[in-house]
Amino acid sequence: MKARQKRLVLVGLALVGVAGATTLALSALQSNISYFFSPSQVMASEHPTDAVFRVGGLVVKDTLARQEDGLTVHFKVTDNAAVVPVSYTGILPDLFSEGQGVVAKGRIGTDGVFYAEEVLAKHDESYMPPEVADTLQTAHVDGIVEQTTGTNTPRSMTQ
């Protein structure tokens, strides 16, 4: 009887462990998704004003400005419909660049600027050696130019 009880407790613990871990992970995932807002949603004031949330989109070309302290950067994030200005103090990830995707975590100030605590860079799934990428780029140069102008004038594009 005692051995069986012990076994039952162990089984219960194993199941509770799996269930608990799953619940924790799912709730973290849930909050990660629910606290994500696109620049359009931020412009429409759908975001929380008193809590940390995430904003994601493309870094608008030619908006990256390094401040005098050398660590603070300003840039703008767009989803091709609206633009949010972002301020961040810290080291940017390696793949951060204008025209690429980012996810910033932080809160929005009264001045309408998003003060980020963390900036994550996204990358697309093309894995090309530089020389191949260059040839591809020249081949598709028209498409690239089109995209560039598209992100420069975000409001003209509604996707």
């Binding site: 793949l95 990358h123 697309d124 894995y127 990428a133």
Partner: peptide
Amino acid sequence: TADQLGGSNPQKEYY
């Protein structure tokens, strides 16, 4: 292989 990637995903050696 190349030490670094190019194009729109310019990852360094860590790729």
